[in-house]
Every structure is written in C-alpha cells, then in structure tokens.
Design a protein around this nucleic acid. Structure first.
Lengths: 334, 334
DNA sequence: CTGAAAGCGCTAACAC
DNA sequence: GTGTTAGCGCTTTCAG
C-alpha cells in the first residue's frame, strides 16, 4: 500500500541483468563489473527505486534502524533526562545514517524487536522482564543509566554514588551539618546510589544522614513540596538540602521563595542534572552535572560495535562534575 | 539474528492446527472456534511467540508504526517547536499502541518508508522533494505546520498570519508606533506568514513596518544579537519588538539586560511559541501561544483515519492565543 | 471454520 | 562476475 511498487525485478529488467546482480549492487557494488554497475545504477536512479526494507530484512539483510526504549514510568518522558538522552541518541544515530525507532514501554512488554537491529534502553525501570526477553532473543542491546550486573549486557552509566558523595561533602565543607537529602524513587537505581553517596559522605565526616532529613520525593514536584511542608512545619529545618534532581531542587527553590527563606543564606541547595533551565537568571543552581549527551553517543557507539564487529558487552562508567554556582554558601555560625 | 526463532510454524505444531489458523488467531481471533482459539492462545503464550513484523508486512499485514520526519534544517531538532511536536506525537501514538520511527531529514532524502505505515512531517523545510516522493509512493501522510496547497495532502497548521497580526496590533493598541519585527527564515512558511501578519496590522492602523525595523534572524540567537547590535548602535531604537519565536525574544531580553535597556518600560517585547522556559521568573514573556500538543494529536488522528478508514486528506487550521504577561507596556509619551 | 498452497521482495548459496 | 533458485515467516485466496 505504501510502496512505490517498483521492485528489484523492475530494476533488473530495465538494466538487463538478473535480480541477483541488482541485489549485489545494493549491498556490495564493488563486486560488479564497471559496465554492469553503471547500467544498474542508472536503472535504480531512473526508477527511483528504494528496496523494501522488510523484504530485505526477512531475507537476512540490514535495515539500519536502532530502537530506543524509554520506560513509561510516570513522567519520565517529560523529564530532562529522557529528552536529553533522546536528543543525544537521535543526533548520534543521525551522524551514522541510522534511523531511530522510539518505544515508550509500559507494563505490557509489547515491544517487537523485529523492526530494529539493536536496542538502547534509556534506563530500566520496572521493565526488567522486557530486557531479559530481548536478551534471550539475542537482540543486540545496551542500557543507559543502569548498571546491570547479573546479565551479560553492555551499559553506560554514571558514578551516581560519587556524584552524591561529592555534593554532600561540598556542603559539609561549607560548614553544614544539618543536611537533608531529597531522594528519588529508590526503586530507581540512580536514586538509591545518590542516597548512598550522600550517606557515605556524612559518615565519612563523622555525621549522620538523619531519617527525618531523608525524604523520598520520587522525583516529583508534588511530593517534593509535601516534604518541604513537613520540614518547614517542624521546628528543625536543615541548613542545606541535596536534591536528587534539578527538578526537585527547582521546587525547593520555589517553596523557599514563597516562604521567604533566603537562598543560600538560610538554606543551601544542590541539584542533580545540570538542567540549563536552572542555570541562568538571578539565582543559578549549584548542581551535579551528568554527561547525558556523551552517555548517548557512547551507547550508540557500543551498539554499533556489537552489531558490526560482534564486540562483546562493554561496561562504561562516566564521571559526574560538581557545577558550583549560587545556591550554596558557608554556614553562618550564629 | 535478533529474533527468538520461534515462528508461526512452531505455534501451529504445538497447538495442533495449521499456520493459517494461527495467522487468523493473530489477526482476527473471533473467527476461530472457541476450542481452537484456546489451543492457539495457550501455544502462543507458552512459546512467548511474537510474530516477525517484517514478514507480516511483506505478506501484506500491519506493523503499527508511524514515521515522524523532522527536517535537518539547522538547529530545529533543538528547538522548542520540534521537541514539543515529538513529545506530542509520541504521547498520542503511545495511547494508540503505535510505535514511532523517527527520521531526521537532511538533503539526501534517504528515508525509506517501508518500515512505517504512515508518515508525519514536522514541518517541511527544503525537503519538498521528499514529500513529493512519498506522496507519489502513496504513503499515507500528514504535514504539521505547513499548508501545502498544491498537493492533495493532509495538514494541520496554525493561523500564523493572525498570530502575527494580533501580537502587532496589541503593541499598537499600547501606543507603539516604532515597532520592529524580528522575523525567522523567510523560506520557512510560518516565518513569512508571521511577518505578513505584522505588516498587515501596521498598515491596517495607518502605520508601516519599516525596512530598517524588519530584521531576519533566521530563528537564531546569534543573528538576533547581531541585529540588536545594529539597532542599538543606530540612534533610532524601536519602542517594541515582535519576535518570530520565544528563543529570539529571549535573546533580545538578554541583550536588553546587558545594555540596561528597561523592559518593558523602554522596550516592549512579544515572542511566539509560549515556551515554558520564559513563562516564569521575575519577567515573564508576553507571547503568542501555538497549541503544539494539540497539533500533534490531531495529526496522529488524521493519519490513523486515512490509514484505517481510508479517509480523504483533511486540512486543519488551529488558532493561536495571545498570552499577556510582563513584557509589554503602554508607551510613555515623553 | 480450517487447511493447502501461492506468493510478498529480497538475499545467499550454488552453479556456471 | 553473473544467473538460477531456494527459502526467510507471514497473510491470503481458494477449496473443502
């Protein structure tokens, strides 16, 4: 229905060769005699012929398309993280002349890998089964943002633990002791790791991350606000908050503004992401940068290598970077 | 290589029926006898069978995938427009259980439609040939953001002329006469239409959009700045600028801040897009909102209708809305 | 309602 | 180098 109807046969007839020769022209032009190559080339162009990729694929050929699976998990598709990964992957693939098949994955696991040559997971959240299935089907794949240790699979992630550690220690070095952490959904690996890092930094410095200062926001603005309200109502506000994401930090910032809590004088804040939305204006967020674009391009590179060169799974961990801006200050001893 | 290897044959054997029956089960389960349906169902689940979509497609079946083509045109993939269309289309398709095949289109026209059932163009910029080709191939398609009048093709666009007109008239109604327009690349239809609208509003009110106040920014921050510098160096600054995009308006805003030009007191500004990035903070941008998400979902619906119900091409024009915020004020007569 | 069989357009042995 | 031919896994007549 949606094809131009000209097939390899038409090209063969017009060029006066067999369909096998046309196929060879398509896949390995160098193997043709100059003379034939020209004839076929002319025929292909004259007919504006494009091979039917699914037929090619069925016969064992390449289709030059990678899949990108983004977990349906809450608002992740609207998160800075997901969009940036999407951008990065799309840009990298574009450079390679590969197309992108995007799949938002809910609980159904209805992704059919037959339309792609390999798959990139933008994190794995509650879709481990899907990952396992694709692995079993021998689909070449690479996971971004989650370290999968119990399977033989490529991943590219960041050192969330160190990111959390550094941010928290930075706060401690500024004299803070009453430090809170607004964590993400702890079922999400990076959230747990950031929390672990924060906790480790506290303990390393003879402090403790108090339970009443450890709040689960699930990366959500709404839950962030609820937690801020609880904290604010208590008579025991922390002097600094390390947040699991810039989005969460942004909500803390708004809350502080509403309640006239001076930032950073009365409350220091650190985010996580380096979302450009929060890097300009009169109060720029101090945050932990994660190299999302680089993660994407590394993932694409790895996937290409596993497909083209049948390279074994690779595991890459990239570093975060603390970006120091306006929202942290030395604690005033009053 | 990336398939689970279980085919319709295996299912048929396990269920004790013919492959034709399995095929029927897949496409129209209602046509089977209760008894057989159950047997096949059990076999499919037991084997974790997923049909190979390319084989299905080759045999004439459905694959449930739409293509989205975004022009490679400069930084469009990084624009608010493109990302929002992408989001909107992805969200709509997700609701329908349809997958998305994303293609960034450069000058090569190497998009192969055989992997999709229909195509959505996020604007058409210097890839008219591609559009024509797909049309010739009878690929079901719909164009977003460009009115294609000389072909029989569906589109969903907005009334850019009216958007430009309203914005400019709003400025005029605030006493402005020295109004500038920072236009986009005029080869892009919406840019031309916004300019036309601005010009019409001026003339309707006995004014004229002066050549020296009509600047081509090509939607780029850099060119916006260059134009601002020229304007600023001249002794004849406008009192208001209507910009072709929020991005451009944002650059004007930055420039004004740097040069201590008070906004809106000395310079009123209107953008176009309603990019949320500029809708908060201490100075919120007055702008023309275009319903990008709605455009996306309408496009998806039209495409589905043309494929499923073979509906004829549809043309939809949505309205813009002037969002009044902080950056326009009445001109002070000094 | 079900089975047999003929392709869909292409690639990949296998001969020549 | 090139042509012939046998499938790839599925849908779809066509009989029964």
């Amino acid at each position: 229905m949606s094809s131009s109807n000209i097939t390899i046969k038409d090209v063969a007839k017009k060029a006066g060769v067999s369909i096998a020769t046309v196929s060879r022209f398509l896949n390995n032009p160098g193997s043709l005699k100059e003379n034939n190559r020209k004839k076929v080339e002319k025929a292909v162009e004259g007919l504006d012929y494009k091979p039917l990729l699914y037929a090619r694929r069925l016969a064992g050929g390449r289709i030059n398309t990678f899949g990108l699976i983004i977990p349906g998990y809450e608002g992740i598709f609207y998160s800075y993280f997901a969009l940036e990964i999407l951008r990065g992957v799309a840009a990298s693939l574009d450079r390679e002349g590969t197309d992108l098949h995007l799949h938002i994955s809910w609980d159904k696991d209805n992704f059919n890998s037959s339309l792609v040559e390999g798959v990139i997971f933008a994190d794995v959240i509650e879709n481990d089964q899907q990952l396992k299935r694709l692995l079993k089907e021998k689909t070449p794949l690479v996971v971004i943002n989650k370290k999968i240790e119990n399977e033989d699979v490529s991943y590219v992630a960041i050192n969330n633990f160190k990111g959390g550690y550094d941010a928290t220690e930075f706060l401690i070095n500024h004299g803070h002791k009453k430090i809170a952490h607004f964590a993400g959904d702890l079922r999400v690996q990076c959230a747990q790791e950031r929390l672990d890092g924060a906790r480790a930094a506290m303990e390393k410095n003879g402090l403790k991350l108090l339970p009443e200062y450890t709040k689960i926001t699930n990366f959500s603005r709404k839950e962030t606000r609820e937690n801020m309200e609880v904290l604010f109502a208590s008579s025991n506000m922390p002097t600094a908050i390390f947040c699991c994401s810039d989005e969460v930090a942004s909500e803390v910032l708004s809350f502080a503004e509403e309640k006239d809590i001076a930032v950073p004088e009365s409350l220091s804040i650190i985010g996580f992401d380096d979302n450009p939305r929060l890097s300009y204006g009169s109060l720029m967020l101090t945050t932990v940068r994660q190299p999302l674009i680089e993660m994407s391009s590394v993932a694409v590179r790895i996937l290409k290598d596993t497909i083209d060169k049948k390279m074994p799974p690779q595991r890459v961990i990239l570093d975060t970077e603390l970006i120091i801006r306006d929202t942290v200050t030395f604690l005033k001893y009053s």
